[in-house]
Amino acid sequence: MASQRFERRTSDTEPGFTTASLPDIVFMLLIFFMVSTVLREQDIKVRTQLPEAEALTKIEQKRLISKIHIGPLKKGENEGDTAIQIDDALIDNRRAIRQIMYNKLQNEPRLIASLKVDVGSEMEVVNEVQQELREAGALRINYSSNRENPPN
């Protein structure tokens, strides 16, 4: 008698699918997005409107990239002057670039210097930065550009 009742009870609870593993699935997705999220872009103090180009390559390995921003200052008393920013800091002395890039290269030998240069810049500053990069031995560079929309 008692065993019969017990069996009936279990068959009662069987229907209705289990949602117990739902949090696991969601957590897995959550962890993926947490890992792939870059919450804060660097505070960029110079204006960099990138040029457009067709022959683009993608840099998949994000951790190899070191960004160098070149463009007119956004604010401050010297607004509009061409300035160079690496990471969060503006570079006052352009000779310092070689030391900064050299140190970065020691940590990551496959470093790619991504030059984010404003379209309105002149080649003088770009050449200067390139010479500094050569001094540092950071030879892999990338002129950051956006995809050109072909006129259709």
């Binding site: 390559t57 840099i59 998949e60 050569r134 560079i141 990338n142």
Partner: peptide, 21 residues
């Protein structure tokens, strides 16, 4: 929240190799 704030943007540009010093 993370879906909304995620930007999966890949850096694109023209790759070059500078000549060694």
């Amino acid at each position: 929240f993370f879906l909304l704030v995620t930007t999966i943007n890949v850096d694109t540009g023209i790759g070059m190799t500078l000549p060694p010093k």
